[in-house]
Amino acid sequence: MGQGILLSAAADVDFMVHGLFSYKFFGHTVWITTTHVCLLIVILFLIGFSIVAGRVMKHATEIPSGFQNVVELIVEMLDKMVGSTMGKHAGPFLNYIGTIFIFILISNFSGLFGLRPPTADYGVTLPLGLATFTLIHYNKFKYQKVKGVIEGLCSPWPFWAPINMIGDIAVPISLSLRLFANVLSGTVMMALVYGLLSKIAVIWPAVLHVYFDLFSGAIQTYVFCMLTMTYITDARTTE
């Protein structure tokens, strides 16, 4: 009995990360999990898309047609989003923001195709948060110099520094946890629907998929990129 109380059909409900096989790496046991496989599928899809897009754009015509339309639409949309948020700082970040936007978006959407979304694993979202953290502080030191950083840390009073430091450290954690928890909650809800209501789960779960995978996934992707851009723009702004 024991654990059965908590989730009465626990055997059917499955949303955890599973280890597929393990190997030894410098004395540690390292697992290849379902996350790795789903991540690999997503990345292969993106690589295939990029190769096709690159080939199409090599023979680009003046009047776009077919697939060229789609590629130009995506690039223009990303350019507009980054440009309108970062203003004159947009230049070097068009590629980075575009890349993480497409990656997170396709990762979130992959729940539609029966994969476990890679972003529902904290090991995927934490590095994304840490990349943002690194960019923020690299740009801060580059543009505000050491003096400006120390001044920012000691505002409004010097003894405020520890609290400002905690605020800095909380940025990547809250960024990554927000994305992770949103996608995970969608995954858990879908697993519960398919696991516990499997007898009547016909067609209508599509509505839930639209909300949890498409809507929530797109919003969270947008929020992640938007916050990254805002923080970086803040770090690069010198008064």
Partner: peptide, 11 residues
């Protein structure tokens, strides 16, 4: 989406 964060921590 940003305001949702605290609720997600509870979740």
């Amino acid at each position: 989406a940003v305001a949702e964060t605290t609720g997600l921590y509870g979740l």
